[in-house]
Nucleic acid binder design. Structure first.
Lengths: 341, 341
DNA sequence: AGACAAAATGTTAGCGCAATCATTTTGACC
DNA sequence: GGTCAAAATGATTGCGCTAACATTTTGTCT
């Protein structure tokens, strides 16, 4: 016979009942050493591999974790993923990964698809889900993590930091350094980028209010955004755009991520602008390259790996019923000040 | 009742039999419009989601594709993954992704785990699998793709290019440009990196043989490698190491990837070496940044996205039995010559 | 040795779905 | 209108495993 061996085949070969073989695979400590060895040998001899579908059906446990990220190509989410994978191992979970391409609608479809795997939990990026997606997740009755940003109305568990605050803090840093004609370069305006922009605007608004009261010079802002997806090259193009819009007066740019910032830095060199004397450049995400280019790019760092890891840990804690309510967790951020500002 | 609705619940609500509901989900064209609408409404009303485990068990089709990559953090594999994801959609496949951290042993364990999902196919990176892993895959009786490199003894389908040839070609390029004291910077010496190094050595050997015959000056080589994982920072360190070893005489470095090459470029600037006048720098993988730094880094480009895509396509073609034998597919590479050489 | 609890092993049933085959309904044609 | 094939729908069964409970074996204590 050529079909794949099943539990019964192993049981017959080892001279035991099927359930004992099953126990060797799931709770080996409940089987005596003698039998266990005999069974393990039989398993090996037949090359038996457990049928996950049958196991999941009978036990009502899929051993699957659904993860949805907005983009495979953005290294930022890869670091989160690494954190997730690092934490998944001890729990014997398989990760099913979906890429929603920054689209809540695609995310909704993915959720519907992934839920059919009856995952033990779901990890989502961001807090911008459709109403139907939220409903689906609530009905599923499994723990859900929204990662990367914070929200007032989390679906369930929420781990992240405030991109608005981080955007404000970085802008305030630029203001404190004396820059008064600041540009914002934004690409692929997802919710997190929009929050960063909102923080940028608010920081300048606040500043100008204070300055006006004291009759000081105000700060000008130049915002250039595009829906295109972010890249180094695009950073150069956006720098040209903001320079055109400000008629060359821009003295600092806050880029919504480090890819753009790197592109802006390379472009600034080509335009013969000294950084930071003629132009300051700030980024977001603190990629490795940002610390190593010359001058180093000032950026916002956040514990991405740790977020991913913690997401899995809280998820499994909740799934095992140890704790039912988790308050939102603010992992914070830090401004890495470097030569570019 | 609070349990999740199943097929029967939907069937009862719609006033049909369970199998008809099943048909709506799998082969809607076999159900009359009238019934289908009624059933779809019932599905929506109950928020019914099909139980994948039961479906897989009954139909003997898991709808799962197992993919193993050596590293989540290396953007190179992400591009392959994107190709895979782009091709997966029309086939209604879910990707289960494993990260083997460049270890054949971990890969073997992952294969054993992933096979329990009874995937429709498996996509592996590289050709360096353990014997037991190969046996497991052969027994599984499903199509397997080995991606990124070529081998004489593929397990099944093989798509990639020769890293040895590419390494040779790049070294020949450096020789043709007149460099005669060439360093090789290698990190995380996996099989592909070793192939590139072998190509490097062979190119110089060949060259020296020809030159010796013609009584010309020979080419010196300086090889610096480390098992550490690759990074921009490490590129700088390795450049220092190769300069120390060659007592500052090195006039070109071939980096086993672009991360190292970028690091070497940044470091060269700090050492006040002009690129390419004092030092040429060549890389591998052709990352976006390599084209945009100044000078641009000469690198080896390969169709990574296309490889991933084609892997899925051939896999599904084979799974559907249309074709049983595929000769190895050489996707080739190209040398992107830029300012750094 | 006998009594008893604990550990080890077995029996039975059912998880939710789709393959298979059986039956009913529909529609086309003369 | 009757015949027939095709389309639509249904009844039954089993996929491979594990939960729940039942039984047997082992070990400990008096």
């Amino acid at each position: 016979m050529n079909r794949k061996p099943n539990l019964k085949d192993v049981a017959k070969l080892a001279g035991v009942s099927a359930i004992t073989v099953s126990r060797v695979l799931t709770t080996p400590e409940k089987v005596s050493d003698k039998l266990r060895q005999k069974i393990e040998q039989a398993i090996h001899e037949l090359g038996y591999i457990r049928n996950h579908a049958a196991s999941a059906l009978a036990s009502n446990r899929s051993g699957v974790l659904a993860v949805i990220i907005p983009s495979l190509s953005n290294i930022v989410f890869n670091e989160v993923l690494q954190g997730i994978y690092s934490a998944v191992k001890p729990h014997q979970l398989q990760v099913i990964l979906g890429d929603c391409h920054y689209s809540p609608l695609e995310e909704e479809k993915l959720i519907a698809t992934l839920l059919s795997q009856a995952p033990e939990g779901v990890i989502l990026t961001g807090t911008d889900q459709t109403d139907y997606a939220r409903k689906l997740l609530q009905n599923a009755g499994i723990p859900v993590v929204q990662l990367m940003e914070l929200t007032d109305q989390p679906i369930d568990i929420n781990i992240g930091f405030s991109h608005l605050d981080a955007g404000m803090a970085m802008t305030q840093h630029l203001l404190a350094r004396g820059y008064r004609r600041i540009g914002f370069l934004g690409a692929r305006m997802d919710q997190r980028t929009q929050q960063r922009l909102a923080g940028f605007k608010r920081a300048i608004e606040d500043w100008n209010l204070t300055q006006a009261r004291e009759s000081q010079a105000l700060c000008q802002q130049f915002v250039v955004t595009t829906g295109q997806s972010s890249s180094i090259k695009l950073g150069g193009q956006l720098l040209q755009a903001v320079m055109a819009e400000s008629q060359g007066h821009c003295d600092a740019v806050f880029c919504c991520n480090d890819d753009l910032a790197l592109g802006a830095l390379f472009e600034a060199r080509k335009m013969n602008l000294r950084v930071p004397a003629d132009l300051a450049i700030a980024g977001f995400n603190d990629l490795e390259a940002s610390a190593l280019v010359e001058p180093g790019i000032t950026s916002v760092a956040a514990p991405r790996f740790a977020m991913g890891k913690q997401a899995v840990e809280l998820l499994m804690q909740k799934a095992s019923g140890n704790q039912t309510e988790f308050p939102p967790i603010d992992v914070g951020y830090s401004i890495m000040v470097r030569g570019s500002t």
